[in-house]
Amino acid sequence: MSKVSYGNIVDLLSKYSYTPAVAVIQLISLISVYAAGMEIAIYHLPLIGSAITAHIYSAAIVVILGLLLFAAAMRTDSLMLKSLSLLNALFCVIAAFEGLFYFGGYTFPIYAFGMGIGFLGVLFTNAGVILYAIKH
C-alpha cells in the first residue's frame, strides 16, 4: 500500500488467484441488488416493472460471482478465504430461495425478511474476503 498506481492496484486485486477482484465485482452487483430491493420494499412497488427486473438480474449475477469466488478461493492455501467463500455461496443460496418463495406466490413478509438476512450474510463474507485478502 505504498502509492496508488495501476500496477499496484492490479497486484493487490490479483492476489490469491484473483479472489479480491471477483469479490469487488460481486460488491458492485450487491449494491445494485440492495438498492433495487429496498426501493421495492420502501415505496411498495408492484412485483412487475424495472425495479424487480434490476433486482432479479443483479441477484443472478451475484450468485454466479459467488460460485466463481468459491472456485477461485479453493485454489488458494488460505483456510479463512476458503471458509468465507463457502459461506458466501451458502448465504447466496439461502437468500435466493427465500426470494423465490416470495416471488413465486407465497407473499408473506417473513420470506422477505429471510431474503434480507441472507443478503446480510453475503455482504459480511464479501467484505471479509476483500479486506482479508488485501491485508495478508
Binding site: L27, I31, Y34, A35, M38, E39, I42, Y43, L120, L123, F124, N126, A127, G128, V129, I130, L131, Y132, I134, K135
Partner: peptide, 27 residues
C-alpha cells in the same frame, strides 16, 4: 417521507461493509 428511509438503508450498506472490512483487516 419514504425517500429518507431509502437514504437510511443506503447509509447502512456502506457502514456494514466498512465495519466488516475493519474486522477482517485487523484479525
Amino acid at each position: 417521507d419514504p425517500s429518507f428511509s431509502f437514504m437510511m438503508s443506503l447509509g447502512f450498506f456502506g457502514a456494514y461493509f466498512c465495519v466488516i472490512g475493519y474486522l477482517f483487516y485487523t484479525i
